[in-house]
Design a protein around this nucleic acid. Sequence first.
DNA 1: AATCGAATATATGATCATATTGTTCAATTA
DNA 2: TAATTGAACAATATGATCATATATTCGATT
Lengths: 214, 214
Amino acid sequence: MKRTAKREFKYEAIYKAALKVFAEYGFKKATIEDIAAELDTAKSSLYFYVKDKRELYDKAVAYGLRLWQNKVRDAVAAETDVVEQFIIMAHKAYEYLAEDRHLQRILMRDPALFPLFSSQDPYSDINRDSIAMLKSILQRGIDAGRFRPIDIDGVAQLLFAFYVMLIQKTYMFPEGALSRIMFKDGVDLILGGLIAETARKKGRLPTKPKPATD
Amino acid sequence: MKRTAKREFKYEAIYKAALKVFAEYGFKKATIEDIAAELDTAKSSLYFYVKDKRELYDKAVAYGLRLWQNKVRDAVAAETDVVEQFIIMAHKAYEYLAEDRHLQRILMRDPALFPLFSSQDPYSDINRDSIAMLKSILQRGIDAGRFRPIDIDGVAQLLFAFYVMLIQKTYMFPEGALSRIMFKDGVDLILGGLIAETARKKGRLPTKPKPATD
DNA sequence: AATCGAATATATGATCATATTGTTCAATTA
DNA sequence: TAATTGAACAATATGATCATATATTCGATT
């Protein structure tokens, strides 16, 4: 194995350990020693890989967010129909945090990591990519005559904001089953607003996959 | 003038003065003395009307929120067509804070007063009424065959959450013109998702009023 | 290049003195 | 009787000081 690849794995191991400890104790209470213990190493060793505690936190969270994004991207790539892609994207992105409890806990403790306001988004580069994915689907949907011609930029921002809000409602400030109903109704309403007249005549709205039962 | 009516005016004057001072200094830095000075009275006099500083703040904000709600309700009542009512409701509710700078500043300083999460809403009774207004319009739209039959409860919650998000984006954490574009695109998209097929055939989507230029 | 233990710098929390401001109340006014 | 007041009082915020915990550095070692 190449040296650089080996280092990549080391970084992944460090980020995973950090995510686990930060999820359990939060940034403030988690100590470098806790994370070092999780990795069976001396705390000073961590400083070979990261500058300080804050950078370890930031990098670990970025790693976690990229895993999420990649999972959605892969699921979208496995579909061919653009409307199905839209639906899959929405469902995979929405359901992901149910599987990644560490990331969920970290976001719960620290909602500023996934904020509604892009100006205060510490990971705007990552989320820009997500919005680009969304725009690409909208663009291809319009080109194929499946979606009505809409303001792609504005609608993409809007849908992303709506999505962030639902993630917050569901995973970061959960208050019951209402947010899942809102997700369902929201996808329906938005698809209803997006689908072109001509496509509408061909048949019912496309079927949605069953949400994962966990 | 009746004694009770006189007292009502006194309360209004107190709430207005409180809103002004709290808007300028925030809850922490505003003093009871500042508010008393605004009213040309002794600070101890205020304790005849309210229990303590916190109650004064809460009641004053509630008063401000009710003014907002009543303005929307009156505007809706002046329309007859249910689709127009929906549009007017959205625009009046959205534009209001541009006119009420004191309330806007208070919300900016203290976003928890108008939160995205109803479980932590200190004024849930007021906002319940707003959602009821929204549901009433949806219900009548469906009954009249102008809106598609949708899950009224879920959609009303969803639209209200979307609305709160836009208020926050526009007035509480403003970051440029994007939020107004999102409002415009959002109303278009949602109306597109709401309007019934039969209504759609009759003509274009209803025209929207020009947003107030300020 | 990577790891380590020990030394040092920094952050955090507890304690207390002091100042500000919130609240009460008996007396007074309209 | 309802409303207002100034003065007394209590509660709370603020800032200084110090002790402890933990983040970070560094020279030695593998």
